[in-house]
Design a protein around this nucleic acid. Structure first.
Length: 415
RNA sequence: GCGGAUGUUGUGUAAUGGUAGCAUAACAGCUUGUGGCGCUGUUGGAGUGGGUUCGAUUCCCACCUUCCGCCCCA
């Protein structure tokens, strides 16, 4: 039998240089999460399938949702699955750690899995970068998530995004005011307006509403937020406060009444970072107040943001490829039969946080290697250097060589 | 899951019902104290399975992959 060595559909290996960019994205995200006071959390990849069932979907729709999960069984016959996202695990964490001090700001970077169709920027194993605040119901928490995401994107050199915001209570109030019953179906259609255009959505809506209702609905959807505030629509005030808070952070948001996000999960303000030219979402999130506390009979308000490295790289490769990646290693030591000395030197370099490799091959090969790996410095270590008590170092980009004493060498490489 | 397209060394490509060619990359040598260029050599290929045929990479069928829509995105 022939061995199939290909990766499974939707799964892949990541090698340099791509892996270096992925690494960089994670580090940048982590840095900003911590700057905003979020602490790291790690959770299992495998969970009981039961725990992953969605909160709000009625039973008859469960089958549909189940399909997107990877399911497996252990030898004990337990029904398990691979986690498809992070936030449902928060509910368990709060069940098992009821003395967690609020607000609890946690971030998590790791792999999630969905057994679903793939396309550009969408794989079945994906690295999600999440930050959530549990136990703070103020719009400041919402705004912090926006500001945080915005900072991350900017450091990733992605600047052409637009932040669209909406509120689920407001959406529900709008649809209820038109007296349409099929809220969920209508939400589904509204979400497509930007993508497929109002006309198609209008005709799709005929299944759920009368022509009059549709006309009224579309008139409403085009109103500014002021209108909803003046007429005391539920959620309008909350959204307005949120938008104002964002502007205190220096962030401009755009009210988009047709922004929906997922069903049955979000309860308040919702937001998406969108690339207007590509009409695609790169970062998204919102407030979900009913989920985290569901096992402890208490409402734990929560808000968070999330993005996946795969989507980001699939959509923003131009920007991301201009990220500065630290060379690994920074120095290649070419040893001319100087085992002891080269190891001694490598220890010193590493103690000073300078990444290095040692090679004993031909210098031409070593230089060629350094050239291809973009290693910025090559250091020659032979009898000549030992006699002089100085190291010969060559800067690959210029080809210039200089003899440096140890102190000077360290100073130069630390730069 | 549904529909459409796709598939030739790692990558990009060419021709062909009868020995699969080119470029590039990789590896080795020219070159055990100096890289990018050059020269020489080596490795490596028809997605998988079936069918038609004396013979299939080529024609047919199925499956798979990848891409594009749909669905979904808690």
């Amino acid at each position: 039998m022939k061995l199939d060595i290909s990766t499974v559909k939707g799964f892949q290996d990541y090698l340099p240089p791509e892996s270096l960019i992925r690494d960089k994205i994670k580090k940048i995200a982590e840095k900003h999460y911590k700057l905003y006071g979020f602490l790291p959390v790690e959770t299992p990849i495998i969970e009981f399938d039961e725990l992953m069932k969605p909160d709000a979907l009625p039973n008859e729709e469960e089958d549909e949702a189940v399909r997107d999960r990877f399911k497996l069984q252990d030898r004990g016959g337990r029904n398990l699955g691979l986690r498809y996202e992070f936030t449902f695990q928060l509910a368990r964490i709060f069940k098992e750690n009821q003395n967690i001090k609020l607000p609890f700001k946690r971030f998590q970077i790791g792999n999630n899995f969905r057994d679903e169709p793939i396309r550009a920027g969408r794989t079945r194993q994906f690295t999600q970068c999440d930050a959530d605040i549990v136990g703070d119901s103020s719009v400041n928490a919402d705004a912090e998530c926006i500001s945080l995401s915005s900072d991350i994107l900017k450091e990733l050199q992605i600047k052409n995004f637009e932040i669209q915001v909406n509120n689920r209570k407001l959406l529900n109030a709008i649809i209820e005011s038109v007296e349409i019953q099929e809220i969920k179906q209508v939400l589904k259609e509204l979400d497509k307006i930007e993508k497929i255009g109002s006309d198609i959505v209008k005709s799709n809506l005929k299944k759920y509403a009368s022509s009059n209702q549709i006309v009224t609905l579309f008139k409403l959807v085009e109103k500014p937020l002021e209108f909803f505030k003046e007429n005391a629509f539920d959620g309008a005030e909350e959204l307005d406060l949120f938008i104002k808070k964002c502007s205190l952070y220096g962030i401009e948001t755009k009210f988009s009444p047709s922004l929906v996000r997922g069903f049955g999960y979000y309860t308040g303000n919702i937001f998406e970072f969108i690339l207007p030219d590509k009409k695609t979402t790169i970062v998204a999130g919102g407030r979900y107040d009913k989920s985290v506390g569901k096992f402890i009979n208490r409402e734990l308000p929560a808000v968070g943001i999330s993005f996946s490295i795969e989507a980001l790289m699939g959509l923003c490769m131009n920007e991301l490829s201009s990220l500065e990646i630290e060379p690994i290693p920074k120095v290649l030591i070419i040893s001319f039969n100087q085992d002891e000395e080269s190891i001694k030197l490598s220890k010193k370099l590493r103690n000073n946080n300078i990444a290095c490799s040692i090679t004993e091959g031909q210098p031409s090969k070593a230089l060629d290697f350094a050239n291809h790996q973009k290693i910025p410095f090559v250091l020659f270590l032979g009898e000549e250097e030992l006699e002089k008590q100085k190291f010969k170092i060559k800067e690959m980009s210029t080809g210039l060589e200089s003899f440096l004493a140890e102190k000077q060498l360290l100073a130069k490489l630390k730069k």
